[in-house]
Design a protein around this nucleic acid. Sequence first.
DNA 1: AAGGGGTACAACCGCCGTCTG
DNA 2: ACAGACGGCGGTTGTACCCCT
Length: 318
Amino acid sequence: MGRSPCCEKSHTNKGAWTKEEDERLINYIRTHGEGCWRSLPKAAGLLRCGKSCRLRWINYLRPDLKRGNFTEEEDDIIIKLHGLLGNKWSLIAGRLPGRTDNEIKNYWNTHIKRKLISRGIDPQTHRLLNGATTTTTTNHDITTTSTTTNICLDYSSTSPPLNDKTNLMIMSQALDTKFKLIPSIIETTIEDNNTKCSSVTTEETLIVPSQPQNKPSINLELSIGLPSHDDDQPIHKRNINVFATTSTSSSSHDSAESRKFSCDFLKVETPSCNATTASASNIVAQGVCSCWQLGFNGTNQLCNSCQGSKRLYRYWLQ
DNA sequence: AAGGGGTACAACCGCCGTCTG
DNA sequence: ACAGACGGCGGTTGTACCCCT
């Protein structure tokens, strides 16, 4: 036998909430706090399902909600995150303080979709409607085989709180394969002279389940750091750091070939040298980035988790 | 002023993973 | 271990509002 039902469905109100119901809900949560939605309706004297109370509170009554029109900056963030995450409204909402998933979903369907279409962009694929490829297409060298690969990085919650789990999905259209990822949480501690930042990131192992002939398989491990603390920048322009190690089925060691991944939201470049010998100077010389940055400290070093033997990549937000 | 079509958005529905008895 | 409720999520719907004719 399971638990007893949360409410008598036949004795609950439906439809728009009245002012009195709102006040009852607000007063109850102010006194007793959020949670325990199951017992809330009865305790608060509401003839509503607990689920309905939760939705009403989260989407409309919470005091920290930002009402009003979306700004251009918020529009841009939503578009970029949608390109990266798809219809993961709750994750997108997590990046926009004061906005709810429902609000963003509605805004997307009523405004942004049309905006993108008017610009000639498919709102689902974020590609040009006439079929031309967008900036998401980059050259991607894998061992001796040169292929063109569209890579989409899906990091679902690299934003605070620090213990959020990060999921990563990589799709390679050129390889005609959807990679399967096995997440495992790793913890990294990053220190510099003044601060100590402890963060939980996710390390992913990429498995190519079925490889087309003549296509190399890729084994890729990735870990994503939290956005950097450059708070003066809009959130979508803050640096995040992703560390990746790769090897291919046709090479047992990670050679020094140049690789470049990019997509609309995350721009990724890697040094043309092995990480074990990487230095700030040769990266600056390439104009790739101003420093070989690990975590938040901006110094040249290798990732603790890779034991100094893996290639490190730096990813940053455009 | 009336009504028809389009738009915006609050609320519901149904699914799925997790939790609890 | 298992049945069934909970919590959370994305998709869909209902309706109030707006604008145009």
